[in-house]
């Protein structure tokens, strides 16, 4: 494993009872944006959940070189928001993680929360309960939570779904800000256009095989697939 890798998968076999694909061995470095592509039910979510520590690998293991508390940001498919709490409360859950204990801790947490809320353009909704928000607005809240957290590795499972292009641009712009500070992003994505525009690397699961490609390699690979 190289020194600067924040995640390394060592012969990782994912699945619940049966392996969903062949063993995966690879590394992820800071600032990389990886799109996981593949058809529904192929194992994309299982891979993300395994890295998040929510599913045990069937074989192999993985090393996560991030802070145990707050180093990993995670946006699940159903967003994982506290529906009856306000937008500000949900975003502050991320903000509370990486701030060391000090007298200015609460002030800093509040600043970080509202910075993230402003960046995602949901300041008018800050004191409303999440349950009142539209699906697209809720996705922005989940992104703001991760933005306030400032993790070293961000895992996102279809977090751009239900968003129109304008909102996709806002959310991706915000995530790009994190990436510029060194955060690596692994996102499950259904829309290949988003992957093309945003990702630097693609993981594709197909016919129980795992492919790890740069975005250029993937574009050539998908063109070849179309020609065939």
């Amino acid at each position: 494993m190289s020194d600067d890798a924040i995640l390394s998968l060592n012969g990782l076999v994912i699945g619940y009872n049966e392996p969903l694909c062949k063993p995966i061995t690879l590394e992820v470095r800071p600032g990389e944006i990886i799109a996981i592509l593949g058809s529904s039910g192929i194992g994309k979510t299982t891979l993300v959940r395994t890295i998040a520590g929510l599913v045990r690998p069937l074989e192999g293991d993985f090393d996560l070189h991030v802070e145990r508390r707050g180093g990993l940001g995670y946006i699940p498919q159903r967003l994982g928001l506290v529906r009856h709490a306000t937008v500000a409360h949900n975003v502050s859950l991320g903000a509370r993680l990486n701030i060391p204990w000090s007298r200015t801790m609460f002030k800093e947490r509040k600043e970080r929360t509202y910075d993230a809320i402003r960046t995602l353009g949901i300041e008018e909704k800050a004191s409303e309960p999440v349950r009142r928000l539209s699906g697209g607005q809720q996705r922005r809240v989940a992104t703001a939570r991760t933005l306030a957290q400032r993790p070293q590795l961000m895992l996102a499972d279809e977090f751009l779904g239900e968003l129109d292009q304008h909102n996709v641009d806002i959310v991706l712009g915000a995530v790009q800000g994190l990436v510029s500070k060194g955060t690596a992003v692994i996102m499950v994505e259904h829309h290949e256009d988003n992957a093309k525009e945003f990702a630097t690397r693609v993981w594709e699961i197909k016919d129980k095989c795992f492919y790890d490609m740069s975005i250029e390699e993937w574009e050539i690979h998908s063109l070849k697939g179309e020609e065939e």
Binding site: R49, G53, G70, G71, L72, Y74, L93
Partner: peptide, 8 residues
């Protein structure tokens, strides 16, 4: 799950 993964 989100809370646990984040490290709360």
């Amino acid at each position: 799950e989100a809370g646990r993964a984040m490290g709360l």
